[in-house]
Design a protein around this nucleic acid. Structure first.
Length: 571
RNA sequence: UGGGGGAUCGUCUAAUGGCAGGACGGCAGACUCUGACUCUGUCUAUCAAGGUUCGAAUCCUUGUCCCCCAGCCA
């Protein structure tokens, strides 16, 4: 999974690391870490971080990347998330080997460090309540003021902190804070909290603790304990870096990792915040965290995205410090690129239109050869069955064709893929509605397999299935979750929900797929020729009821031509 | 209006004083038993104004715009 050096996008983080390695900083060690909080499912934004941290480590000799769960807030966390996160990281193709850690493993050490800070007069137990602390903190433009409890003696602080640990106080009664500077222009330095009382059992430490350390205290020390050299995080932690450094410096910690911040990933037509994703799940706008429209790794996987395509995507978007919104088209390109190469082709009719070959013998059935991949012979061929009654897609016929319409139309000849050249000789309509319900065609027996011995050309080749030799299937057509490229751009009074795309899922229940799909295994990806890439749904598909998810449509030049045509008609 | 960051094609990203490059996207064409794939050509950018310099995306000055921070979340 190494990406070639020549095309390796250079980024400022790799530049820093290369320089550090060159100057033998950290004795030439390189250790990064991916530090998820087990309070939700991973999304593609996390994939960027995983790809960066594990990627960077793998590019340098001896580089290591730890998987560490930042599990310091048991009120929000759960083991189920731990398991799903591990599964997702593995699925993405990364291996932490024996480097699996939990911040909760360090709770004893962390407690000792906190005691040390108290003894040094750098931390104190504050008995203000949350509201008071907020009031004392000041504002962005005004300095805060010292808590009346700030000057408690070391002994008293020690005693109170010990009693906090023992569970003698209610939640919120006290909090351990650093003693830095209530007038600091950086609000994060105004005596930030180190420990809070939380009478909640922890998914790993059970009910051993009644106090839990805060992120700012835990993260830097965990990094240091694990020998991390480069602690990569997102931009919003820039303001926390002075605190990260302060804790390590005050404690005289030898291994002092360097925190480096980069911009988080945003993608057009979707949202990436856990809060928003949560809301979509709670409201039922999607079927769950693994809904194929979700940008979660579970959702993308179910949609049919390959791990490789996501890695390639991460490689392409690069790493920088400026806020950015990556075009969804790039993600889609990445998966098409991979699927084009590896997905076997099959034929499926999504909106069936009956087609009768009038001059084809009534009960005859022929086996025809079809290539599983037109550009890769090693993928072999399969047999497809041809008969007198077929289905083709409604989009492939027009009684009165617009300009540049090459497909089936009365009197014109087209090729049925891998089968015969046919000509439309008649149209059967519903007498009531006028809707076309059947096409009458003739075929040229000399063109078996789709060849034309006399060298005559047809403009189009269309796909088909035999009516009796095909399977019913449910097909789910997915599109962008949001109708607008920036879901956060809303009129006042509305929120991102108002930008949901009402057409993000269209379910087709009358689709017909070729017989070879009979035992299609959930999770398998195919290209339905001339339509899109599809993945057998891993949740709802069964032997009796096939369900396919559209991963991404094929590029469709004809659709563009049509759009332009309808636009000019409107004028 | 405190503090911390950031501004390069439509989008993402390179170029660390020396030809503004790549990818996606768009457009045009070639090819084609997928209007796919592939191939060819093409389009578009240094936030602004000054300055330093033989030479500035890069250095300096001034300004503009955008993002983040007032959890006992991470």
């Amino acid at each position: 999974m190494t990406y070639p050096d020549s095309s390796q996008p250079s980024d400022f983080i790799r530049a820093i690391i290369s320089e550090d390695l060159r100057t033998n900083k950290n004795d030439g060690r390189l250790v990064t870490r991916f530090p998820p909080e087990p309070n939700g499912y991973l999304h593609i934004g996390h994939a960027k971080s995983i790809f960066l941290n594990f990627g960077v480590a793998s590019e340098y000799k001896g580089g290591i990347c730890n998987l560490r769960f930042d599990d310091t807030n048991p009120s929000k966390e759960d083991v189920k998330y731990v398991e799903s996160i591990k599964e997702d990281v593995r699925w993405l193709g990364f291996d932490w080997n024996d480097r699996l850690f939990y911040a909760s493993d360090y709770f004893d050490t962390l407690y000792d460090y906190a005691v040390e800070l108290i003894k040094k007069g750098k931390a104190y137990v504050d008995s203000l309540n949350a509201e008071e602390i907020r009031a004392y903190r000041g504002t962005l433009t005004e300095p805060g003021k010292n808590s009346p409890w700030r000057d408690r003696s070391v002994e008293e602080n020690l005693k109170l902190f010990e009693r906090m640990r023992a569970g003698e106080f209610d939640e919120g009664a006290h909090v351990l804070r650093t003693k830095i500077d209530m007038a600091a222009p950086n609000i994060n330095m105004r005596d930030p909290a180190l420990y809070r009382i939380l009478k909640v059992p922890h998914h790993r430490t059970g009910d051993k603790w009644h106090i839990y350390p805060m992120y700012d205290f835990t993260h830097c020390l965990s990094d240091s304990i694990e020998g991390v050299t480069h602690s990569l995080c997102t931009l919003e932690f820039q303001d926390h870096r002075p605190l990260y450094d302060w804790v390590l410096d005050e404690l005289g910690i030898q291994n002092h990792p360097q925190q480096i911040e980069f911009a988080r990933l945003n993608i057009s037509y979707t949202v990436m915040s856990k809060r928003m994703l949560h809301k979509l799940v709670d409201r039922g706008d999607v079927s769950g965290w693994n809904d194929p429209r979700m940008p979660t790794l579970q959702g993308l996987r179910r949609r049919g995205y390959t791990a490789k395509s996501i890695r390639n995507f991460c490689n392409r978007i690069g790493v920088a410090k400026r806020d950015a919104v990556v075009d969804m088209a790039l993600l889609e390109h990445s998966v098409r690129e991979d699927l084009n190469q590896h997905a076997p082709r099959v034929m499926a009719v999504l909106h069936p239109l009956r087609l009768i070959i009038e001059n084809y013998p009534e009960n005859q059935v022929e086996e025809l050869d079809a290539a599983n991949h037109p550009n890769d012979e090693t993928m072999g061929t399969r047999k497809i069955l041809f008969s007198r009654v077929l289905y083709v897609d409604q989009d492939d016929f027009r009684e009165t064709p617009p300009k540049k319409f090459y497909r089936l139309t009365p009197g014109h000849e087209v090729r049925l893929r891998y089968a015969y050249l046919i000509t439309c000789v008649g149209v059967v309509k519903d007498e009531q509605t006028g809707q076309i319900i059947e096409l009458r065609c003739t075929y040229d027996p000399a063109t078996r397999g789709g060849s034309s011995p006399d060298g005559r050309k047809v403009k189009a080749t269309i796909h088909w299935v035999s009516a009796t030799h095909s399977l019913p299937a449910e097909v789910r057509l997915y599109d962008h979750l949001f109708a607008t490229s920036n879901p956060n751009a809303v009129e006042s009074g509305k929120d991102f929900i108002s930008n949901l795309n009402p057409a993000s899922l269209k379910t087709l229940r009358d689709a017909r797929v070729e017989l070879s799909l009979k035992d299609a295994v959930p999770g398998t990806r195919y290209q339905f020729e001339r339509h899109a890439y599809f993945c057998v749904d891993q949740v709802d598909s069964s032997d009796d009821a096939l369900v396919f998810n559209r991963t991404v449509a094929l590029r469709d030049t004809w659709a563009k031509v049509q759009q332009i045509q309808t636009k000019s008609e409107d004028k």
